[in-house]
Nucleic acid binder design. Structure first.
Lengths: 396, 396
DNA sequence: TTTATTTAGTTCATTAGCTTTACTAACCAT
DNA sequence: ATGGTTAGTAAAGCTAATGAACTAAATAAA
């Protein structure tokens, strides 16, 4: 029934993953200053999420003492990040509270969206999410061809400068959502669409604009926007259907960058086994072949009005097939689709959902939600702004 | 070329994700005590991965001052977690260093592996990874049928008690790797194989054994074992081929639990589109149909020696098809396979790799490594021990 | 009208923890 | 011996959070 053996120790000690030792160098010590930083951010975050509050409210919400909160708030006020709003009209006994809030209209963020192949877009957005100015720059040259490489980079710099100068508010930072692979240092490792390779965009923009700059992949910032301003859960993927197809992934409330900063590259994966299970890589069998805006548009034109449903259904089906293993693997709660509503909404999304339920077991999909984004046109701009909020204020 | 508009603010403020406000309740304030806890863990972690060191070495490695390190080390020594090893023979001028190290042979962990359908396994393992005792309990009743439900639970408790009592060292904690879905409170939400549903296993074991207990899914602890003691990167998935097929995922060095604590359920996902793209869910088309040990064994018997390669190749192919979207999506650096070596090693792994390279774009797979685990039979036991180390010492 | 109660926010002394500076201990080399 | 080097400790100081006591300003009750 039961079998017990006692051995002399010393046979098979384990070895510790050598790469972990290296990581340790990164693990930082903590100081009292870190404690303060943490609590400061906690206060900011509380205000950010829960609107105007009294110091006492903040103390209750954060579990910090009134004394500590008063000190932190005073500091934040002196930095201009928080402002007093006057007294709350008293409701019940006790001294009336003085309300404080993030100075939402006192700072702005410059956000850029480089995801479109024809038009670079940008905006000045304040901390309340209000747009104060917009600017666009056509990516086309005199011959009507999209500019790339250094010329495109110059266009981006110009756009950033224009918006920086258009802002009447002090600018907290510059956030950029760009297609391509962006590493943790803000270097665009590769962005075929823009003709960039190993372009240190963050450094360039920081130098040229004087603004604290953050660069991230467009699908990632889109996911962050959805997470910050949508009604998402903590585990979801946003699939962006545009010139290409890419995804941004949030797990446990954290953005997933991938080992090579190339997460979300779902568009280039083969879908289905139409050509046999061991068929070689074939561009006609990758997800983008069915799902990108250019190919979808072409297919819809070719099919005519009668074939429209069929084309959209096929696209949704393929998306479902591609996502099924991801859903099973990650136990996602939600898939958010972003793309032209007339293409994505309805049939396409429905078909994807149906295929997902057909290809994964109920456990994996019975709480799954699939829906389209409610953030509209400004998804990327908002995401770029959210990235700056996260980096500069620890708020998100 | 460029088009700038300045709007009055106030048009479209963003709304903050309402679920975030709720999460805030979890976000905790920091106190000076947290700082100390952090640094204490940092010292432990440093000793854990870098072997015996002098106090001065630790100070250099952690960036803490010698004074702080001396204080923390003194405390850890008084708790019995760290011990002085005597002087290092001097090499060069200066006072010779006194070496200290984790008291690796002074504490033990009781680890249980419930993943096998016939045999519950357990061991007493010290902090160096040496096995001090082993015990097993057959899951079969008098009729030779695997016990489930409460009877299985009793068997687990007995096994834990046996090992606890067999340990001559003080026991730091009890770690359990079990099949099924386990939530953050150590409740087994569902484990069909063991006939458990909503079983508060952690609570039960804590009460019955008096040991600090941690329960996690078997594939997750396997991944953690590989991450702790293998030579993995920070972004990988471990695919466990056993009675079923499940996976554990580590991204950025963190374990991914999934929104419903059910990550890694890759075995129940349909693979390929043999029956058409919109075929209904079919157990004959899910990954486990080709890849689990029982089905593989059966297929190999049916095929005979001549068909062996073909069967293994097909299984590897299916695994590759299922993993391709996951690889593209997560940009994993590595896939680790765990299962009977005679089945998994070689043809199966090779086929999976080849399919992966055929179904994902080079960017996604050109640095991808696929290999089998080097942790052997004790993978789950080691993982269960690693979980306890992580929970109790913050070390991993 | 006066008094008690309640809530907001501040002042002050205390505690916890890390750091700097200064020191002793112990070793090597000249 | 003496100077230089490294390990480790002691004492004082700085930062940050805390608890107790206090003031301020309102409502409710007597």
């Amino acid at each position: 029934m039961k079998h017990v053996t006692t051995r002399s120790a010393g046979d098979t000690a384990w070895a510790i993953n050598p790469r972990r030792a290296r990581d340790l160098r990164v693990a930082a010590k903590a100081t009292p200053g870190d404690t303060k930083q943490h609590n400061r951010t906690l206060v900011l975050q509380t205000l950010y999420v829960s609107g105007p509050l009294s110091r006492a409210d903040i103390a209750r919400a954060t579990q910090l003492t009134k004394v500590t909160v008063s000190g932190l708030v005073a500091e934040l006020i002196s930095e201009g990040l928080v402002e007093e709003l006057g007294q709350r009209e008293s409701q019940g006994p006790g001294k009336p509270a003085t309300l404080v809030d993030l100075a939402r209209s006192a700072h702005a963020i410059v956000a850029l969206d480089l995801s479109d192949d024809k038009l670079l877009r940008g905006a000045v957005i304040d901390l309340a999410g209000r747009t104060h100015a917009r600017a666009e720059a056509a990516r086309l040259d005199a011959q009507g061809i999209a500019v790339t490489g250094d010329a495109a980079c110059e266009l981006v710099i110009e756009l950033a400068l224009t918006l920086r100068d258009a802002s009447e508010l002090p600018v907290l930072g510059l956030g950029v959502g760009t297609p391509g692979v962006v590493d943790a240092d803000g270097v665009v490792r590769v962005a075929p669409n823009l003709g960039w390779e190993a372009l240190p965009l963050r450094q360039i923009l920081t130098e040229r604009t004087g603004l604290a700059t953050t660069i991230e992949n467009d699908a990632n910032v889109a996911a962050l926007a959805e997470y910050s301003f949508g009604d998402t859960s903590e585990d979801f993927a946003l699939v962006r259907i545009g010139f290409g197809v890419g995804a941004g992934i949030i797990l446990g409330g954290r953005s997933i960058p991938g080992s090579q900063f190339a997460s979300g590259e779902i568009g280039q994966v083969m879908v289905g086994t139409d050509l046999g299970i061991d068929a070689p890589y074939n561009r006609e069998q990758v997800l983008e072949h069915w799902l990108s805006v250019p190919t979808l548009t072409r297919a819809l034109e070719a099919a005519g009005p009668a074939g429209r449903e069929q084309v959209l259904r096929e696209a949704g089906n393929r998306l479902g097939v591609a996502l099924a293993p991801v859903i099973g693997m990650l136990n996602l709660a939600e898939i958010v689709l972003s793309g032209p509503p007339e293409l994505v909404d309805g049939t396409l999304a429905d078909a994807a959902y149906e295929i997902l339920t057909r290809r994964t077991m109920p456990n994996s999909h019975d709480t799954l939600v699939i829906r389209t984004t409610g953030q509209g046109e400004d998804l990327i701009l908002r995401g770029a702004a959210a990235v700056v909020l996260r980096e500069r204020l620890g708020v998100s």
